[in-house]
């Protein structure tokens, strides 16, 4: 595989075996796509369509599937580095903010100043020694964002990272995400069920069907992000996503 290859996903079948009386469940079927290096891809689909399952397969947490996944690797690196922003921040409650972040870094990264830069960018510079349980939900999510960018990932996976926040906070975090991403470019796979969120963020939106998840539409968004604060533009993207009855928020 060429050194500059991007992300290549080919999941033929992912099925959960029957548990007790529950029937076996086919989560994903014939799901194929590639992403360019540095592309911001939103995976949009209804709840329960297997989005998180797909991210876990890509992250290597779930190896029990039929198909293959090839990750983008930076030239000169042996293995791709993955950053993952989970749906819940998944910070260790017994470690402070700064300890949580530095824990996942190499000594060089920890000493490089990237953490301090990212903490400043997310306005967390005053709380490095706070324990996560004392942070607000929005702050915890920013810490998770910092942690994922600080590892300088070849691939950044994000699983509805702004769900259950109030809309103004979520909006601010989305802009913050784009700002950080511009400063630290990487391939992003962003999972959401919110059409508006996808329309604001993505270079490209991949629309998934309900379970078993497969691709319904692959829509490149070529409107520059600076024009997307216009509600009419966002609405036009949503129209193009098939009227989006199913996904209207």
């Amino acid at each position: 595989m060429a050194a500059m290859s991007g992300l290549e996903i080919d999941v033929r079948l992912k099925r959960y075996p029957a548990v007790g009386r529950a029937a076996p469940h086919i989560a994903l079927k014939d799901l194929r796509f590639t992403a360019r290096r540095g592309e911001f891809v939103c995976l949009l689909g209804p709840s329960g369509c297997g989005k998180t399952t797909l991210l876990n397969i890509i992250a290597g947490l779930d190896r029990d599937f039929d198909g293959q996944v090839s990750l983008p690797t930076a030239p000169g690196k042996e293995e791709p580095v993955i950053g993952y922003v989970f749906q819940n921040p998944r910070l260790l409650p017994w470690r402070t903010v700064i300890e949580n972040i530095k824990l996942v870094l190499t000594p060089e990264q920890a000493a490089s100043g990237i953490v301090e830069d990212l903490l400043a960018a997310t306005e967390l510079q005053e709380f490095p020694h706070a324990y996560p349980e004392r942070l607000s939900v929005g702050m915890s999510r920013r810490v998770a964002l910092v942690r994922a960018f600080a590892v300088q990932p070849d691939l950044l996976l994000m699983d509805e990272p702004f769900v259950s926040l109030d809309e103004p906070t979520a909006d601010r975090l989305r802009l913050l995400l784009l700002e950080i991403w511009r400063a630290h470019p990487t391939t992003v796979l962003f999972v959401t069920h919110d059409t508006r969120e996808a329309a604001v963020l993505a270079d490209r939106i991949i629309l998934l069907s309900s379970a078993p998840g497969s691709i319904v539409m692959d829509l490149p968004i070529d409107i520059p992000r600076c024009e997307r604060n216009d509600p009419a533009i966002i609405e036009s993207i949503r129209q193009r996503l098939n009227g989006g009855d199913e996904f209207r928020v």
């Binding site: 950053g83 993952y84 819940n88 998944r90 260790l92 824990l103 942690r147």
Partner: peptide, 21 residues
């Protein structure tokens, strides 16, 4: 399990996972 998965994705390795997680 959430913490263990986090440790696995971010490649903490056995020693760090044991000590910190």
């Amino acid at each position: 399990k959430d913490h263990l998965e986090m440790a696995q994705v971010f490649r903490l390795g056995r020693a760090k996972t044991l000590r910190h997680v």
